[in-house]
Design a protein around this nucleic acid. Sequence first.
DNA 1: CTTTGTGCAAACGGTTTGCAACCTA
DNA 2: TAGGTTGCAAACCGTTTGCACAAAG
Lengths: 155, 155
Amino acid sequence: MDNHRTTRQRSVILDELRKVTCHPTATTLYELVRRRLPSVSLGTVYRNLEVLVALGLAQKIEGQGQARYDGCAEAHLHVRCVKCGRVDDLPEVNAHPEGAATSSWNQRRHSAPLEEPSQDANDCGGYQILGCRVEYFGLCPRCRGEATHTTLEES
Amino acid sequence: MDNHRTTRQRSVILDELRKVTCHPTATTLYELVRRRLPSVSLGTVYRNLEVLVALGLAQKIEGQGQARYDGCAEAHLHVRCVKCGRVDDLPEVNAHPEGAATSSWNQRRHSAPLEEPSQDANDCGGYQILGCRVEYFGLCPRCRGEATHTTLEES
DNA sequence: CTTTGTGCAAACGGTTTGCAACCTA
DNA sequence: TAGGTTGCAAACCGTTTGCACAAAG
């Protein structure tokens, strides 16, 4: 049940997932993999993504619409474009050399993004809190340009 | 296009949505509404939820699995049970009279839950940040009890 | 040789949509 | 009466699954 084999499909899927900077949907990844393995099936992509997530080699980003996958399982923050749905990593806070480092919020935000055990929120409303998830949303570079009207949804 | 009528269905749907403390899925709400309006259709529930959200009378909580709806559109935090998927409001931080009020995190967490314009994270990676979403996850009272094994998913 | 993984296609489940009748303003 | 709204059922679409065959260890 947890003896996993290294198949060609599996390694290409992980490789392609790690190559892209944005976090693709299963179908997008499927297209990428298909360039190297023309006969892969979408089902195989889904099955392998599930395995990779279970093995801690990738993470699944759920939210509105299609799920997205991240080849890096380490905790870090994501931004989602409200217009096209694209998801990217949020650059490190350190990379922002502005003086706003006063509030503890900044370090906090950085060190405790995904899955912080969050002691001070423990036992709220009878719930045993296990962590929290933070996701930023906004407009990606491309959609900022187009801006204003136009219908939602794209790719 | 934005001239909305007050139909029996619409008001019962909003009324039922406001009556429940947890945040129901469309189908759960459909069952509730059906007790009063035996012939409503699920499609009507979906269409009205969409309208209510657009009117700012409700909010849609997306995440893993089925979407959930909240009859209160004000910004506040949610906890999601990782086992059964149930979503509840997180009680106000003030209700926690423990001395942990030292960190600015607590006030921050309370005042900036949903949709904070988040200036200090502005323009990250070319994105125009519009806000952020925070969601806690953990075990709801019922699932805490059952605990340990058992398969995931319930209701 | 055993067991996990694959391709294919059908099934699933939540949500959306087209349409004719209906009802609110 | 006009145009938003409803019920119904079919369509959609992302994801999952059953099966027989392929391939890894």
